[in-house]
Computed example of a mutant assay.
Amino acid sequence: MNIIVDDLSGGEVVALLEEHLADMYATSPAESVHALDVDALKAPEIKFYSAWNDNSLLGCIATKRLTAGHIELKSMRTVKTARNLGVASKLLNHVLELATQHGYLTVSLETGSQDYFLAARNLYQKHGFEYCGPFAQYTADPNSRFMTKTLVDVELEEINEH
Score class of each variant (00 low, 15 high):
Thr67Ala: 11
Leu98Gly: 05
Asn53Ala: 15
Val87Pro: 08
Cys60Met: 10
Leu96Met: 05
Lys80Ala: 11
Ala35Arg: 04
Pro44Arg: 15
Ser28Phe: 05
Val38Tyr: 09
Glu72Trp: 06
Lys47Arg: 15
Leu36Lys: 08
Asn53Phe: 13
Lys74His: 07
Val33Cys: 11
Ser50Leu: 11
Leu17Met: 00
Trp52Tyr: 11
Gly86Glu: 04
Ala82Tyr: 05
Ala43Tyr: 11
Ile61Met: 12
His94Val: 03
Leu66Ile: 14
Phe48Lys: 10
Leu21Gln: 01
Phe48Asn: 07
Met24Asp: 02
Val38Cys: 09
Arg65Phe: 04
Ile61Asn: 06
Lys80Asp: 06
Leu92Gly: 01
Val79Trp: 01
Ser32Trp: 05
Pro29Lys: 06
Asp23Leu: 02
Ile71Gly: 07
Trp52Ile: 09
Val79Thr: 14
Lys80Glu: 10
Thr78Gln: 09
Ser75Asp: 08
Asn84Ile: 06
Leu16Cys: 00
Glu97Val: 07
Leu73Cys: 07
Lys90Ser: 08
Thr63His: 07
Arg83Ile: 06
Met24Arg: 00
Gly69Ala: 13
Asn53His: 15
Arg77Glu: 02
Ala62Ile: 08
Tyr25Lys: 04
Lys80Met: 03
Thr67Tyr: 11
Thr27Arg: 02
Lys90Leu: 10
Ala82Pro: 07
Asp54Val: 15
His34Leu: 13
Lys64Trp: 08
Asp39Tyr: 09
His94Cys: 02
Ala43Thr: 07
Ser56Lys: 14
Val14Cys: 01
Tyr49Ile: 06
Phe48Asp: 11
Val14Gln: 01
Ala30Pro: 10
Ser32Ile: 05
Glu19Leu: 01
Leu21Gly: 00
Leu16Arg: 01
Ala43Gly: 06
Ser89Asn: 04
Pro44Gln: 13
Glu31Val: 05
Ser32Phe: 05
Pro29Ala: 01
Val14Leu: 01
Met24Val: 00
His20Gly: 00
Glu31Cys: 06
Tyr25Asn: 02
Ser75Trp: 05
Ala30Val: 07
Gly69Thr: 15
His70Thr: 14
Thr81Leu: 12
Pro29Cys: 03
Asp39Val: 15
Asn84Ser: 14
Glu45Phe: 11
Leu73Thr: 12
Ala68Arg: 14
Ala82Trp: 03
Val95Met: 02
Met24Lys: 01
Glu72Phe: 06
Lys80Ser: 08
Ala40Gln: 15
Ser28Gln: 11
Lys74Val: 08
Arg83Leu: 03
Glu31Gln: 12
Thr63Arg: 12
Glu31Leu: 11
Ala22Ile: 00
Ala43Pro: 09
Leu91His: 03
Met76Leu: 12
Arg65Gln: 14
Arg65Tyr: 05
Leu17Cys: 00
Leu21Tyr: 00
Gly59Ser: 10
Phe48Val: 11
Ala35Met: 06
Met24Phe: 03
Leu41Gly: 12
Ile46Trp: 12
Thr63Met: 13
Gly86Val: 02
Leu91Met: 04
